[in-house]
Design a protein around this nucleic acid. Structure first.
Lengths: 226, 226
DNA sequence: TTTTAATATGACAATTATATCATACTCATA
DNA sequence: TATGAGTATGATATAATTGTCATATTAAAA
């Protein structure tokens, strides 16, 4: 497995150095940011390659809460908040706005690294799980990337496959074209919404009669019936 | 989504009751165990249906470390360890033997629940429970964007749907045509007020007998009875 | 009851959303 | 470099939605 990249956001140079040092010794690659604004810019620019964010709460130029909320609007990247504030209220708040963990300062590097490793161990496991979705004659095997309709394998392009997966994972729910662009194409894609239509169209054709399961919700998006 | 089941392992009855109470209020289903041996037996017997284990470290009949290690030999079920021991060494050890989180006692239920929710949010693919408004034979599911009258689905156009949603969200209150134009059409819309009448009309027809629930308040606007 | 104003309704045209098609571009591979 | 699969985009066709108006109906007031 390739190196994981961690973005460390803290205004104190001493802490950044301490963490960078420990993390790199553990085999992680580290990017640093000294304030909220810079962190957001960094993430917008290289978000795709960042596997985890260590985010201090007390920051100049947008505090940690703001940074967390802004990032959550565009990404589900794991975020661990670091905070000197030890109130329960703050901790709960951190989780509510989308953080994955909340660690109280002073941070002990050994403990933090144990947490990070445990976290990656868990999400890698979830990712690696061979997931098979099957119902009503439709079968999607995520580990082999194969799709079958009535036991007949059909070949989908990458975009078509991901599109189908997202729709089926959220079956019964309407997903807007904007959401689909985010989820399938990535939050940093700025193409036209019509592109989604075209791909839906091709997907429907390839799915044959199962294509009817993709319902158009005029004005709102698409929904997979299930 | 179906209820998640949590196995709470703690020898103190008081804590078990406290946690069970809180967790059930949050929509989890709870199983209890008062010692390590019993916890292992319980898990071996119904492990398949357990989604998370809250495991105290200080236990009679096999301590928490042992239970965690034994479970890890046969399962990857998420484990959150609870411990009165606050040494960093213990925390690191907990992660090393396969725990997913380590929470120091005394446990604050609100914090623990925030952690548990964040954890499930991360590892679950599907999230976000759907918001459903239902009463008197009318059902509006906003996530799937479906409207049912007496369990019969009816298809509404975007404007009709939004109009209905606004009316129902404010049921019992009169909403003026101006307000409806603002809420449904947007504040920057400058069409005629009569347009609302037409849409109300079309909505009433599609709702069938439920259409009678939209009352005209002469001179003021409309009101959804409920 | 008559009058008046407000609202309901139906028809139509205008607008908008979506599906579909044709084409050009991109990128990996032979 | 040529090929082909995959993709993005714009043009056009099709279909649904919407806004407006004329007219009918209704409710309140005189």
């Amino acid at each position: 497995m390739e190196k994981k990249t961690i973005l460390v956001v803290d205004d104190e140079l001493k802490i950044r150095i301490l963490l960078k040092d420990f993390l790199e010794r553990e085999g992680f690659s580290v990017i640093e940011s000294q304030d909220g604004k810079h962190a957001l810019e960094t993430f917008r620019c290289r978000g795709k390659s960042i596997d985890l964010i260590l985010l201090d709460v007390m920051l100049p130029e947008y505090d940690g809460w703001t940074v967390c909320r802004e990032i959550r609007k565009i990404s589900e990247v794991p975020i661990i908040m670091l905070s000197a504030r030890s109130e329960d209220f703050d901790e709960v708040h951190g989780f509510e706005i989308g953080a994955d963990d909340y660690v109280k300062k002073p941070v002990k590097p050994t403990v933090l690294i144990a947490r990070i490793n445990a976290f990656f161990r868990r999400i890698d496991k979830v990712k690696a799980e061979s997931r098979v979705i099957a119902f009503d004659g439709l079968e999607i095997d995520d580990s082999s990337h194969t799709v079958k309709v009535d036991n007949e394998e059909i070949v989908l392009s990458p975009k078509e496959y991901t599109l189908l997966l997202i729709l089926v994972e959220n079956k019964g729910k309407v997903i807007s074209r904007e959401q689909l662009l985010n989820l399938v194409w990535g939050y940093d894609y700025y193409g036209g919404l019509r592109t989604v239509d075209t791909h839906i169209n091709r997907l429907r054709i390839k799915l044959g009669k199962k294509g009817d399961s993709i319902t158009t919700i005029r004005g709102f998006g698409y929904r997979f019936e299930g």
